[in-house]
Simulated scan of single mutants.
Amino acid sequence: MSQWTVEGPDRITIEETVRTLQVRTIDGTVNVVAAEGPARLEVTELKGEPLHVTLVDGVLTVTYKDLSSWNEFGDVLKSVESVKGFFSSFKRKRTAAVTVTVPAGTEVKVGTVSAATTVSGFSEHVSTQTANADITLVGLTGRTDANTVTGDVDAQSVAGQLRLNTVSGRLTVLAGTAEKVSANAVTGAVTLDLAAATPAQIKVNTVSGAVGVRLPPLTDTKVEAGTTSGDLSSGFEELTVAGNWGTKRLSGQLGDGSGSLSVTTVSGAVTVLQRPEAEDDTRAARELPAPDLTKSDTPGTGPDLTKEA
């Protein structure tokens, strides 16, 4: 076992093999980057208690000594009320700006209360959770899970399997190529810009959050979308809207229907559009979440996907 105590800005190089990374912090920022070479930890800001760093059997942990275990910490982040109670148990505020560099094949687990998190470049399982901070995921190819209470989640060029959950945050996928996508929100809006060349399995659930989906032009997807009081619209001639009173459904088959898109919402609007061919993904990343595409200031309103790229 190796251990370090970080009491201020510091840099640590870890020569031993790291197979799993766990980061648990309160406020500040957490950046986890995949790169070759030995693992490296850089702390550029630290206020409050010192960070406790350990390496045991290939598991590198960066946290505070009095923070709970990973499972207990996850339970704390399930509601705003539980987070407030968690904060009250500390004598003083804690802020840390942490950057960890580990090999791309490392399993990554990050849990924060209000620290913004960015994870990029990994091929193994990535799990992130926070209460009221944003999560950014870039270039991941394994299984990816992201959970927030009020924070937004932005996933860019993420493949593999992607599962996103929030209460009131916004969920956005840009140039997504994941084979399986699951997005769940209560009042948060869900925007999926999908670029997979092969059929994918996509499932979206919201209560009042708007849902916007862009599919590749030659997609093979069976579409089933339903809403009780929201609007339905589509850019595909093959998709039709049925029902006037109560539940309305948008359904149809694109191509051979080997993939699937299932959307369920109570009062949220649902829009399914065609992604332009050979679209510049960098430009798409700029345009889709831009504030000027939001039609209103109503919470949970997503970007206007009817605007052509």
Rank of each mutant, 00 (worst) to 15 (best):
R163E: 04
G176Y: 01
L194W: 00
T172H: 05
L174W: 04
Q161D: 09
D193W: 05
Q161E: 10
T191C: 13
G188I: 05
A189S: 15
V181W: 02
G188F: 14
S168V: 00
V167A: 06
T166V: 15
A159M: 09
G176M: 13
L162S: 02
T187V: 03
T191K: 01
N165H: 15
V190G: 03
T177F: 06
L162D: 00
L164R: 11
A159K: 13
T191P: 00
G160K: 12
T191H: 03
T187H: 01
T172I: 12
G176F: 01
K180M: 08
S182R: 04
A159G: 12
A175E: 08
E179S: 15
A178N: 15
L164I: 05
V167G: 02
S168Y: 08
E179F: 04
V186I: 15
N184Q: 12
A183C: 11
S182K: 05
R170F: 03
V167M: 05
G176L: 07
N165E: 10
D193L: 02
T172S: 11
T177N: 12
N184S: 11
E179Y: 06
T166Q: 06
N165R: 13
S182I: 05
L171D: 12
V173T: 14
A185C: 07
A159W: 10
V173D: 01
T187I: 02
T191L: 10
T177D: 13
L164H: 15
T166S: 14
R170Y: 09
L174E: 03
Q161N: 06
T187R: 02
L174M: 04
G188E: 11
T172N: 13
R163I: 01
D193H: 06
A185I: 13
G169W: 00
K180T: 15
A175G: 15
G160A: 10
L171H: 03
G176D: 08
T187D: 10
Q161H: 04
D193S: 08
E179H: 11
L194Q: 08
L192C: 12
N165Q: 14
T166M: 07
G176V: 03
V186H: 13
S168W: 07
